[in-house]
Write a protein that binds this DNA or RNA. Sequence first.
RNA 1: GCGAAAGUGGCGGAAUUGGUAGACGCGCUGGAUUUAGGUUCCAGUGGGAAAUCCCGUGAGAGUUCGAGUCUCUCCUUUCGCACCA
Length: 817
Amino acid sequence: MITEEYNFTQIEQQIQKYWDDYQVFKVAENLSQEKFYCLSMFPYPSGNLHMGHVRNYTIGDTIARYQRMLGKNVLQPMGWDAFGLPAENAAIEKGVQPAEWTYKNINYMRKQFKRLGFAYDWKRELATCDPKYYHWEQWLFTKMFAKGLAYKKNAMVNWDPVDKTVLANEQVIDGRGWRSGALVERREIPQWFLKITNYADELLADLEQLPEWPEQVKTMQKNWIGRSEGVLIKFAVKGRNDVLDVFTTRVDTLLGCTYLAIAPEHPLVQVILKNSTNAKKINEFVNQCKQVQVAEEKIATQEKIGMATGLEVIHPLTGKTLPIWIANFVLLEYGTGAVMSVPAHDTRDHQFAKKYQLPIQPVIKPKDNSDWNYAEQAFIDYGVLINSGEFNDLTSEQALETIGKALTKQAKGLVKTHYRLRDWGISRQRYWGAPIPIINCPVCGPVAVPERDLPVVLPEDIEINPNNGSPLKADASFYRTNCPNCREPATRETDTFDTFMESSWYYARFACVNQNKEMLDDRAKYWTPVDFYIGGVEHAILHLLYARFIHKVMRDEGLLNDDEPFLRLLTQGMVLKNGAKMSKSKKNTVDPKALINKYGADTVRLFIMFAAPPEQSLEWSDTGVDGCFRFLKRLWQCAHEQQTVIQAINITNKKSTEIAENWDQASAQLKNLRRQVHVILKQARYDYERHQFNTVVSGCMKLTNLITKEFPELKPSQVTEENNLRQSWLTETMGILLRLLAPIAPHITHFLWRELEYSDHILQAKWPKVNAEALKTETVEMAVQINGKLRGTIISAVDSDEKSIQTLITADAKFKK
RNA sequence: GCGAAAGUGGCGGAAUUGGUAGACGCGCUGGAUUUAGGUUCCAGUGGGAAAUCCCGUGAGAGUUCGAGUCUCUCCUUUCGCACCA
């Protein structure tokens, strides 16, 4: 019975209970049906659901439910990215165990998800902090270690000299530690790395296999990998049996090199400090350079400073000596940690040269022979070589090849492909993460924990003291062990994995969460690749690149078949209020829970899908939510009246979504109404396919407006053929409307569908088909433009197209003088 | 600094291929119902004119019979920059 009042709380609870009791979203592999794996990026269980989550998961759920209506075997799972920094902070602030805090949050957030009515297969839920999950991550790491894909080397971290801890970039505020307020410095410590650079070429090339990814995401990944062709030049250090390697993509400017710049951490600096008479000053300078946090943005925007070392190199072609400078903008981790500086043809080098009065030597002139003031500005484009001896008059393009060859011939350089992409540092000096399964033996060195001893379980009952280093070191039962090789006493690695490790393979694990004997089984081969992946655009580079990399590693282990993990990608925009990102500090947050209580899940879902297309940012509007609520109430009212009429006159074909057989006899007005319905239906299908859900909602609103506008006439005062046809139109239209809306507002449509006796469950309903006959029109409206300006419209019968066009041409000719 | 996007009424947005700019919703105005408020319903709503005419898609240029859409320059905003997730 459709009551007069729209009681959303009651119907949503009732329907959610039904979904739960009958496990309608539980799926299994089925080879006779096309599979569709729809995945939204899993959340970090921070404790409260925010609007960004609601948006992300509503988009995912809408796609999953739509695909299900198209007849596909849809998997939509949910889990928790449960390791990470906030749990440790909570532990310090509130004195709770990170594990306890995390699981409590998960339980709370799961309830919120259920209230939003997401069609998840909850049997597949996973949490990454569960040893049953990270067991296999550790296992994969040992495989990578065996293959040489995991290795240890020194790398920079943010070091808080007062708290004596490593800080995340987020914990550095204005160059100072967030707790101590001490100036943060860069420090080198040994860390674990994965050789993602081995896959650089493939990661780049396989972007071609992803036509359904947003172009801008692919471009960002391409630029991040940053493949470039260039020359590695060997500069001999004067007076020492040593060479300084420098990579350049602009070897055509080599003759214009007037100095070399090296990173403050470059090994040569240590040599200089030992031998230089100016060691004290240089040391001071190097320490000054280190007082910058480890973020490319900070390094690139800081004031560029440098100091001459007194050491010189010999130019490989001219034999002239060039000074070596230490410069704070050169990164040790990028390339060779040394650059050749060509002030005349590089903006940054130009500024630096002017600041320290270093010579500016032009070697390229503009191709059009125009004058260039090299003292004023660097000329960075390709041009024609000057002041370059035997290479004069070559174009830059020619010189790149010629000078490269010359250097190779003299063994002073080699042509090389360089990547901006660096190996992935996965060590974190943190407690709340998956332990890196390595045992450090004083005799054998780092040894992987053998398969039989996995997982290395993170002790969960520990004491966290922010000033006392890793709790894992303090826990003797964890820390002390024996070497699996030589049985001698050894210690465990206390670094834990970067949490990006967990999120790099969870999508595959969802296919077989209950598999305890191996990482993945054949079910993962059935469900992967993910057909649709939805998440924040902020993950466009790091997470997606790491996941693509780990996918390829798993493929090479024989665990998966395909080259890429995610076939289609949708990067959703942020949720804003008053033009700013919602955040506690700005006090502009909207609590989803309060909203669901007030309006119900369907209204919240509807607003979020209506307010903006998914890839754009969404501006929150309380009155906009009201509008969506009103719409659902109107829909409810229509259905209520329709049911009343059906019951009053006992129409026989009430259960059918098909139009009446004698529809031909309908009036032109009625046929026109039906045409409008099918135009909207056609557009909705197109909009679902291009994920523009806001216009789908708009279409549903139009259908509701059509029904409400026509309804007074649809109440039959007497049974006539025309009135029966009107009823048939109404039944068909309402059937279409409910199905178009079902993926977005699943509760109300589920309820009304059953109440209006279309069939038992809208979940089993098939997507409505556009009727070609219904789309036909009798007249067509044509715009008349003269010189691009609208000068009138012509309404014409469809059959007389030619005539109208004739009229148009005549009119045009007449007005054109 | 580098990389990637976005700018359309008072607001969120629509316009599928270069072809009638502003669909749909919010807000606002007027009216009906109501003791009143709220709700609901009806009508109107880009700006200027009040003569069916002009102007109008961040700014400026360009291509075209025709540009919100394509090209260039600039401005503003947002995201990412490798230890937040």
